[in-house]
Structures are given as structure tokens and as C-alpha cells.
Design a protein around this nucleic acid. Structure first.
Length: 118
DNA sequence: AACTTGACGAGGG
DNA sequence: CCCCTCGCCAAGT
């Protein structure tokens, strides 16, 4: 699967655009929702190259933390953008996923196979 | 073809 | 909570 494929990337962006203000999704979660062919790593790779007006800041890792530290993006930018939308972070830079994680229609009740998170 | 590098994730210490 | 290991998969060298 080529992450540079237009359609492949578009599916990720379309989903990210649906995340409401003040809510977040994780890389692995997006991989689960999109299903076949998607993994947390590839989703992260796709996000790296995006900018088409997608709310990229609403995608964080499964620990509830931002993963921009080792990146060209100014440290803490992502977190401050989210805080501006109402997401609350602890002093350790972690947010409560139970409260802020968002699922698309119908997915929150579905059983998730942990093995699909890879 | 071999090896390294990630906007990752889960489990163990 | 921090740190490490391993599994993962595509890209870059």
C-alpha cells in the first residue's frame, strides 16, 4: 500500500476533518476505523505530509500526548492549539482520552480487535 | 538487497 | 510515570 496514493491519503484526511472541535483521535484508532490497509504507522506517515486545511492537531498518540517533540513543528504548538479548543492537558502534557477521544458514528459501541492496532 | 528511521502501539519492569 | 523491547510497515540511503 502506497501512502502517497491520493485516494489512500484522502480517506485519512476526510476522517480527520470530521473530528469535532475540542475532541481528538489517535493514530491507531484512525487505522481501525479506516480498516484494511491502514496501520498506526502509516496513518502517522500520511499526517506528516498533510496541510490541506485538515485539523491535524486533533490527532495524537494512544497515550493521550502530542508527538511533535522531535519534529520541525514548534514544540507545544499542537498542545496549545488543542487547549485553545477546550482540550485539557495534565501538567505532564497528557489529556484524558476517556473524555476527549472522539469516535465516528456507530463505532463507539463496536468491539475493537486489539491486534488491529499494530 | 540490507539497514535505518519514524506524528505508532502494547506490554513488562 | 519513565524506559525499554518488540512488532509493525513504508520510505529513504
Amino acid at each position: 500500500m502506497n501512502v502517497n496514493d491520493k485516494n489512500y491519503r484522502a480517506k485519512v484526511f476526510d476522517l480527520v476533518r470530521q473530528i469535532p472541535r475540542g475532541r481528538v483521535m489517535t493514530y491507531g484508532q484512525i487505522a481501525i476505523v479506516l480498516g484494511e490497509g491502514y496501520t498506526a504507522r502509516t496513518v502517522g506517515y500520511v499526517m506528516h505530509g498533510s496541510d490541506d486545511g485538515v485539523p491535524w492537531q486533533r490527532v495524537i498518540n494512544s497515550q493521550g500526548k502530542c508527538s511533535t517533540s522531535k519534529l520541525s513543528i514548534p514544540i507545544d504548538l499542537q498542545q496549545s492549539m488543542l487547549e485553545q479548543e477546550g482540550v485539557v492537558f495534565s501538567d505532564k502534557g497528557k489529556c484524558d482520552l476517556n473524555e476527549f477521544q472522539w469516535w465516528p458514528e456507530g463505532f463507539e459501541e463496536d468491539e475493537v480487535q486489539p491486534s488491529l492496532l499494530t
